[in-house]
């Protein structure tokens, strides 16, 4: 059986200061997914949608439904999942594409 890389690594301890739960990131921010506190099956779901470690994402909306854009795909996440995802806001003035790898 070929296994894929998990959607994100587990929470390290201590957690770096720059990391925030996705729910606390302002709308319109570009960030990188750094870690998650999810069960393996839930992380597989994220992997399927391209939400893998260090992947860049664009926060379109937060709240009870969180919408992020990753690799050109709009992904909806319930608040319960979003608050378990740690992201690090990045400078979106960089030359990289906003929601690509």
């Amino acid at each position: 059986m070929i296994s894929s890389q998990p959607a994100s690594r587990r929470f390290p301890s201590p957690r770096p200061d720059a990391w925030l739960p996705l729910t606390l990131v302002p709308e319109g921010t570009t960030a990188r997914l750094r870690a998650s506190d999810l069960r393996d099956s839930d992380r597989d779901l994220l992997t399927a949608l391209g939400l893998t470690p260090d992947r860049r994402l664009f926060v379109c909306k937060t709240g009870s439904l969180c919408i992020v854009e990753v690799r050109g795909m709009r992904v909806g996440l319930s608040e319960a999942i979003a608050e378990r995802l740690m992201v690090e806001p990045v400078d979106d003035s960089s030359s990289e594409l906003p929601v690509g790898g």
Partner: peptide, 10 residues
């Protein structure tokens, strides 16, 4: 229940 993580199609 399976957590709500869904692609939001156009």
């Amino acid at each position: 229940s399976r957590p709500m993580v869904l692609e939001l199609p156009s």
